[in-house]
């Protein structure tokens, strides 16, 4: 039961981290940047990580700048802790293969950077923009999926936390808390289907923020320059 209790706290903590690093903050200007630009930024960071150790450090720096310059410094703490989870796992599992702490550390920096950059991408992505674009591309049917996912995931995580709190209060096994969350989600999907069916037509509207688009474009330019210089030098 004590291990169960620890595991339960861990799952609750991880859910809270996901909520805080992706969902809790409402909409803001920095989420009004074209998704293609956000994707390009992520790709340049991936390329930098793959280039060299210096590239990795530049990518890490670029990711940190993304959080800071785009008004998400508050999220950085939670995203960093979340990104550390796969990082620590990689560090430990890579040691027997590399047999070198330095080499393992290098891999670790890469994994951390990529995780953080991916979290930044997910944080700044706006599901309303995805729905808006899908609607314009005549993909009306599927345009509801990104928005519903962004709406439902934190809702479910919140319920998971409640169910686990109750399971520990009742001193029952962790899996019982997880099982009732699954049952609840099944009920939710039925309710969502019913409620969404009889609602009006979905016509997403969206706008772009020039200021934040310009900041993101600058970050992309810096990364592209770094890629060019690194390729030139090495």
């Amino acid at each position: 039961m004590r291990i169960g209790g620890k595991l339960s706290s861990l799952v609750k903590y991880a859910s809270e981290l996901i909520i805080r690093s992706l969902f809790i903050y409402g909409d803001m200007e920095s989420r009004h940047v074209p998704v293609i630009l956000n994707l390009t930024l992520l790709l340049t960071q991936v390329v930098l990580v793959n280039l060299s150790a210096v590239g990795s450090l530049i990518a890490l720096f670029s990711t940190l700048l993304t959080y800071v310059f785009r008004g998400a410094s508050k999220v950085l703490k939670y995203a960093s802790i979340l990104a550390s989870i796969p990082t620590i796992w990689y560090f430990i599992t890579s040691l027997p293969f590399t047999l070198s702490v330095v080499k393992s550390l290098a891999i670790t920096v890469n994994v951390f950077t990529l995780s953080l950059a991916t979290l930044a991408f997910l944080y700044f992505i706006n599901p309303i923009e995805l729905a808006y674009l899908m609607n314009r591309l005549k993909l009306k049917e599927v345009s509801l999926y990104p928005v519903l996912t962004w709406k439902a995931v934190p809702h479910i995580l919140k319920d998971l936390k409640t169910a686990l709190t109750i399971a520990s209060m009742k001193n029952v096994e962790l899996w019982r808390g997880l099982a009732i969350t699954v049952v609840t989600v099944e009920e939710y999907s039925q309710f969502y289907e019913e409620a969404q069916h009889a609602k009006g037509v979905f016509q997403p509207k969206y706008w772009y923020s020039w200021r934040d688009t310009a900041i993101t474009a600058c970050l992309v330019m810096i990364n592209l320059t770094a890629i060019y210089l690194l390729k030139l030098c090495f």
Binding site: F23, L148, E194, A195, K199, V201, Q203, P204, K205
Partner: peptide, 28 residues
């Protein structure tokens, strides 16, 4: 007809308040 479900959470589709109102009503 439009049906407002007994459990209002499931009636809400989008992640933000502004987008919910702009996407499902006649407001411009």
């Amino acid at each position: 007809s439009i049906y407002l479900h007994q459990e209002p959470w499931f009636f809400i589709t989008t992640p933000y308040v502004w987008s919910e109102v702009l996407s499902f009503t006649d407001f411009k």
